[in-house]
Design a binder for these strands. Structure first.
Lengths: 223, 223
DNA sequence: CAGTTCGTACAGAAAAAACCGTACAAACGA
DNA sequence: TCGTTTGTACGGTTTTTTCTGTACGAACTG
């Protein structure tokens, strides 16, 4: 009795997850039928086999990108674009993902802001074209440099304000020794934090300038 | 008329955000009254002034940690622990954040898994005690090393499977030249991805071993 | 200039996540 | 041993995010 209580919810959970993935796969397969712009329609059987093979890696990209705060759908979109040779239009994305064009629009712009994807102009094509950044090293470096940069900017600003407030508080007359002591300790912590941001700034620079690749070299080839 | 349509929703949005922050601040101030374990109760006026001064930085920590995929509440909890001198119990956290003990339990464990906070045993105290990792450099390095490690692990596994499937597909007889070509290109991309993971693994090592601090030195002091 | 085609803003629906209260197991103390 | 204290699992509720359809402005086309 007690056992069934603690076991059942877990099963339900797993079922839900699996069910979701199942549905997504179906949608994925469905959308394959759509004939990509300009590409001759080969047997859709081959097409679906290819998609199926890619699927595993796409899904794992989606999963890892979720770790970095992106939604799974955006991760999946990136995965699809990763494999797609030519730049994609919003409509292609829509048919590949089975999602709405609106979502593609917002999604691709989010990926774009993160430098994981970029717009590509092509003569004679009126639609916006996007392609995944080919250079994964560049993506990586830009992604984190950007995040760290923002972290520095936001926190330094708040830090300054807090520091100011604490110092002002310290100068008030009717402060108990205990509180004074605490304020001192707080200020010490903030000072250390400043050192951290200074270092992080160096990191950002090392990343953005590409010096990181001198320090940690890219392996020649791996088999 | 058309203008009011496009302007009003924006205002509503801003109001919502501000309203939320307002409420949070109130909650923050309320929770200050609680007397921390063992600390003599000084004038709660000073206490609240101190809290107020800290608030700005805490909130910004929360905001930046949200960028890294943590919930704002967890960020706030971390911020509170950052300033708190002694290790905290779940009940203290509860009273400081104004949230439930359950949330504190799950939250602190999440922070713990990310190495931003760690358990600290103290003689004679039965409750679990947690404190924020003092060394922010260590936190940073471990946090990202951990994430990257997981990325490598998850994606390499899926990559291998996909690679295998693609190669198998390539050996089937009735494959059109176009598809064969696509598969070849996919395999090429995966090969490049492998190189990326190999490099990322070096990064993880450089971080975990602390070599990163030789390459990008920590500044002496900053004023 | 009218008629298309595109991309996006926005409001509402659907899905997911954060959060809480209850209940319970484990560790401890009398 | 029995009562207490402490941390956590879990179901349900609230809040947030994601996603969609509609509608509309901008850019192009004939």
């Amino acid at each position: 009795m007690t056992l069934s209580w603690s076991v059942l919810p877990c099963e339900t959970f797993v079922q839900k997850k699996l069910y979701k993935r199942f549905i997504l796969n179906i949608l994925g397969y469905w959308s394959i039928g759509a004939s990509p712009r300009g590409v001759s329609q080969v047997g859709s059987n081959e097409e679906s086999k290819l998609e199926e093979a890619r699927q595993e890696y796409i899904e794992s990209l989606s999963e890892t990108m979720e770790m970095y705060g992106l939604s799974p759908s955006m991760g999946r979109l990136y995965g699809i674009m990763f494999f797609h040779e030519d730049p994609m239009t919003l409509d292609e994305m829509r048919s590949r993902t089975g999602m709405s064009k609106t979502s593609m629009s917002t999604g691709v712009r989010a990926l774009s802001r993160l430098k994981l994807v970029h717009k590509k102009w092509q003569k004679g094509v009126r639609k916006d074209l996007y392609e995944a950044e080919h250079d994964q090293f560049r993506s990586f470096v830009e992604f984190f440099a950007q995040q760290w940069e923002k972290e520095i900017q936001i926190n330094r600003k708040a830090l300054a304000k807090t520091e100011q407030n604490l110092k002002r508080l310290l100068e008030e007359e009717d402060i108990s020794p205990e509180t004074t002591d605490r304020i001192r300790k707080d200020l010490e912590k903030l000072k250390e934090a400043k050192r951290y941001y200074a270092w992080l700034e160096r990191m950002v620079d090392v990343f953005e300038s590409g010096k990181i690749f001198d320090l940690v070299s890219i392996p020649e080839d791996t088999e």
